[in-house]
């Protein structure tokens, strides 16, 4: 009943891309996404492909993992391509029955598919090369300047970290309760939908109660160790920008200029 769960797509490694400061990686990913929406012709894609291919090569991550990231939206890409291919009006190139493929349709379909593929590949690369802890750490540091307007940067990052940490624990708990109830005769796998939903109750009541109990224990443990939020906290691992980070920024600036150029001066 529980789908097999892969928690985290992160692939540990020791490449320059892995070692980059997570803050820089997040900012560059955002810039990359914005650039994809600036692009309005295929020259732009040619440039942005450099933007994605270089880090992929440097990170030494197998292309297989990037394709895996594309799988969830494969259907969306397919539908987009098919509909654009057949339903865009223009110069007819090929005809199948009452459907016709137009030149504009082919262009549009390729353009939309490329945008989606580039978008997903780029953001997948971020999660493939950055551990969840580094990611939340980076987010906390990036949100720090907004503390002044009342954004609780540390608390938000802490909640994300705790959530990630406890997904496997609570999942295990769910499985354990399920087995315990099955041993007492609960039936999760037969009957019609209404019955199955009803049978969820003996699973969910203990699950919620144990979550509240665990939260209480954890709060007590944290307070016993004098946890009081991010103020005056010192870190064992300091985030530091290195030469790779500065190089990546320079590289991005160059490519961004290129993309903007193709948008306004090539048609």
């Amino acid at each position: 009943m529980l789908k097999d769960i892969n928690i985290g797509q992160y692939i540990p490694g020791d490449s320059p891309v892995h070692r980059m400061d997570p803050r820089v990686k997040i900012i560059l990913t955002i810039i990359y996404v914005v650039l994809l929406f600036v692009i309005n012709n295929f020259y732009g894609y040619a440039i942005s492909s450099v933007f994605i291919i270089l880090p992929v090569v440097l990170s030494k991550i197998s292309i297989r993992y990037l394709f895996k990231g594309l799988r969830p939206i494969l259907i969306i890409i397919l539908i987009t391509v098919l509909f654009n291919l057949f339903l865009t009006e223009g110069e007819v190139v090929y005809r199948i029955g009452s459907f016709s493929i137009t030149k504009e349709g082919i262009r549009m379909a390729a353009f939309m598919a490329l945008r989606l593929i580039f978008l997903i590949t780029g953001t997948t690369l971020l999660t493939l090369t950055t551990s969840p802890i580094d990611l939340t750490d980076g987010i906390e540091r990036l949100l720090n300047p907004f503390k002044r307007i009342g954004v609780p940067a540390h608390e938000l990052a802490m909640m994300m970290t705790i959530a990630l940490r406890f997904i496997p624990t609570l999942l295990e708990e769910t499985e354990k309760i399920m087995k315990a109830q099955m041993a007492r005769g609960a039936d999760f796998e037969s009957g019609n939908f209404i019955n199955r939903a009803k049978n969820m109750v003996p699973l969910l009541v203990p699950l919620f109660i144990s979550a509240f109990r665990r939260a209480d224990d954890l709060a007590m443990a944290m307070e016993a160790r004098c946890y009081r939020g991010g103020e005056n906290r010192t870190r064992m691992k300091q985030l530091k920008m290195s030469a790779v980070d500065y190089a990546a920024f320079a590289f991005t600036a160059l490519l961004s200029a290129g993309v903007v150029y193709t948008r306004f001066f090539f048609h």
Binding site: M159, F166, L171, T174, R196, A211, M222, Y227
Partner: peptide, 26 residues
């Protein structure tokens, strides 16, 4: 209690994520 609230929010994030993955096979 502030710490406890923070943890409860985190737990409900985790539970929602798990909820997306518990499915009733139909």
């Amino acid at each position: 209690n502030k710490t406890r609230n923070m943890i409860l929010v985190a737990f409900f994030i985790a539970l929602t994520a798990i909820g997306a993955k518990i499915e009733i096979p139909l």
